[in-house]
Write a protein that binds this DNA or RNA. Sequence first.
DNA 1: CAAAGCCTTTACGTTTACGTAAACGCGAGA
DNA 2: TCTCGCGTTTACGTAAACGTAAAGGCTTTG
Lengths: 141, 141
Amino acid sequence: MTETFGIGELAREFGVTARTIRFYEDLGLLTPLREGQKRVYRGRDRVRLKLILRGKRLGFSLAETREMIELYDAPAGEVGQLRLFRDKIAAKRAELDGKRRDIEAALADLDRAEERCRARLGELEDRPATGAGAEAPGLGG
Amino acid sequence: MTETFGIGELAREFGVTARTIRFYEDLGLLTPLREGQKRVYRGRDRVRLKLILRGKRLGFSLAETREMIELYDAPAGEVGQLRLFRDKIAAKRAELDGKRRDIEAALADLDRAEERCRARLGELEDRPATGAGAEAPGLGG
DNA sequence: CAAAGCCTTTACGTTTACGTAAACGCGAGA
DNA sequence: TCTCGCGTTTACGTAAACGTAAAGGCTTTG
């Protein structure tokens, strides 16, 4: 437990540069400890970095991702705060649901494209003369 | 059929500026007709714009989105081309699947956060004294 | 006929998210 | 002692995706 990491270590693990990790710190997204001058990251920071990169993959800006991370580690404040919080969570979820629908649609489009592609390939492999130029017909797997 | 649109019309419909639409044209993503100097967009461009914006919501760069759109309207070339094409489609699908998994994970995280939030709210509404400051206890719906 | 709207092109500005280089510290090892 | 290797700060550079003016054209409505 209480495992720690160097900046290069994290950079290698997640396929980013140290510059990137320092940049996230500048934005307040990561808060490593220090051993002398050197940054020391703990599991918490590693998790956060993972969340940041996930947010990026989903097209969120770093600001948006920060908001989302803040939603993850809830504050346990007073009732008003908690309600606001719950509403924010609901909003983000709606956004994520939208993205999911977008993904389904994109996947469906790709499926159609692939189907057309596959059908056309079937035609060409059956009778290589039809349509375009010929190739090695049916020898491969 | 053959309905056409002005640039402002499309801009309003999709919540972007005309500048944005012209920018996409600069990148070769849209290819409107012209009536004199004015751009005239047809259904095809409207669909493309929709696809571009979907790509953006999913965190794809405009370059990536262009590639994806090119996959949608298949070329029907020769066998080699088609196979390359099919592979590209598979790759994009893998990427989209990854994003979907990211979304599921993010939604799961949000669910956990919401559950904690809800539980805490339940506590506070049952016995408002526990933990933090009080509010109007149980009058609302 | 003048102002209001919608469109045009050209061009510089801005934000986000880093890249890249310079110059330095510091411990390990040949 | 020198030089890797890893880390540091400071600072300017950059690509992507537009924003935002400036200056003008066409048309239609009062």
